[in-house]
Design a protein around this nucleic acid. Structure first.
Lengths: 257, 257
DNA sequence: CTTGCGTAAAATGTATACAATCGCTGTGTT
DNA sequence: AACACAGCGATTGTATACATTTTACGCAAG
């Protein structure tokens, strides 16, 4: 879904019409590709992002890649260190807590707003999302399930119709994805998408108070399922914990499946 | 406070030591300069920002300026349009409402957190800020007063000790500055910094509930003092409303006083 | 006087070249 | 064997050149 066949350079347009314009900034493609790879856990927290490699994969110059990395850095999913390059963010337990505290503050309001603006199409989309999440679970693909779970929250935010809060929450959800990759306790694998079902019900019923309450409880429960016991400083600074040698064998093209 | 004497080029370091390192990204200087100029209303909403001009003022290449502009765009204080360049953002009434609604949600929580972490130094700084605001008012400099007013909220956020929420609020405050420039009803000029005094009192008393309540009421009052009656689409798209001909006479160096 | 078009100037988009820095590796010393 | 350090390759930082696009201007036709 990232890109079709970017291994071979500039991707010449099929027809004669060149259409060089495209009113969206050209780094959006790189941004989207990296963002997707990050929140779907195809790149691990802390992983190094080398500009040249990314540029080659997407068939653009480092100029464009840098713009994309800077945007991702402002989203909080990438960390930029001067002269040291870019890495996938690696939230500390404190940061993880702050992210979920912020969600606990914002999402109940979003749920309440959404409850007041639901239409049939919205309900349909929410159910489709829940179905996808359930199916991923059934297929034993927890990564996909977590991804769809986050999408559920994005959908609700879209329904709420508050551009600003939706945008803020979007960033929080992206970072939540990193937090889950790091601190999620798998044990009770079948989390509790019951919560999502209950939220959909309250939304469909237009019950703003109940939607807000359920959402707040849901976020609190999620936070409770994280293991935020202080690990040591974690890789980086101590010989980089063997340079991730195990998970990225050596010259593995870590991007582009 | 932005820069000392930027009319003449690159600001050569005073001593022989060149100090090329500086672990902060080099576009920060440009970012800070522009950001300060924007939130202090030295640049008006909607104003064009030409890369080459800015580059000349700060003595850097367009590469750096572009990075700064992109960062400002993600803050929501600058708008980037492909092939059309950058402009100071010009929030619509809807966006203005959303900004203050978000503040109404977030700032009470921040106030409550701050009330639980006050120390004497904090109280001192808050009082100093209030004093600066009052003095600016007395000197008939409403711009400065509004600036210090925003700083008051930034200070409270700093005391709260929640990095994430502070960061989010920082962006909201920057955008609020634009909203105020556009929609503030001056009539009752001496706004009501009584509200700020009352908030400081509740913070110093460590009364979390009262701090939260007062803050919520304060934000609501601010929102009420805006005139968000729908103006037409406002400049841009209709011959740019004469290209600001009135306020920027022609080749005026709009930056650098 | 207005409208339309074509050319020129200005501004932005992108790639590339080169400089600066980092981090690894191998060599020598204690 | 452990450590320090010099050198080199890899990577990032910044400026600049060039392509593309927008915008401004002038001239002619209606």
């Amino acid at each position: 879904m990232v890109q079709s066949d970017m291994t071979e350079r500039a991707a010449v347009p099929p027809s004669g019409l060149v259409r060089t314009s495209s009113d969206t900034a050209s780094w959006h493609a790189v941004y989207d590709g990296l963002h997707d790879a990050i929140i779907r856990h195809r790149l691990d927290p802390g992983a190094k992002l080398v500009e040249e490699e990314i540029a080659e994969v997407f068939g653009v110059s480092r100029t464009i890649v840098r713009a994309a990395l800077q945007a991702l850095a402002r989203d909080g999913v990438v960390i930029l260190q001067r002269n040291k390059g870019a890495r996938i963010a690696h939230p500390t337990p404190d940061e993880a807590r702050e992210i979920f505290e912020a969600r606990e503050l914002i999402e109940p309001r979003i749920a309440a707003l959404a409850a007041g603006r639901m239409n049939t199409g919205d309900a349909e989309r929410l159910h489709a999302c829940l179905h996808a999440e359930h199916q991923a679970m059934a297929s034993d693909e927890p990564r996909e399930a977590v991804y769809h779970s986050a999408n559920f929250h994005r959908l609700v935010a879209g329904i709420a119709g508050h551009q600003l809060l939706s945008g803020i929450l979007g960033d929080l959800l992206s970072r939540s994805s990193l937090v889950i990759a790091l601190y999620w306790r798998m044990p009770q694998a079948l989390c509790e998408n019951e919560a999502h079902h209950a939220i959909v019900d309250s939304l469909a019923a237009g019950d703003q108070d109940r939607a807000a309450t359920l959402m707040r409880q849901h976020i609190a429960a999620l936070l409770g399922q994280l293991d935020l016991s202080e690990r040591p400083q974690r890789q980086s600074s101590l010989a980089e914990a063997l340079r991730d040698a195990a998970r990225v064998p050596k010259g593995t093209r870590v991007l582009a499946r």
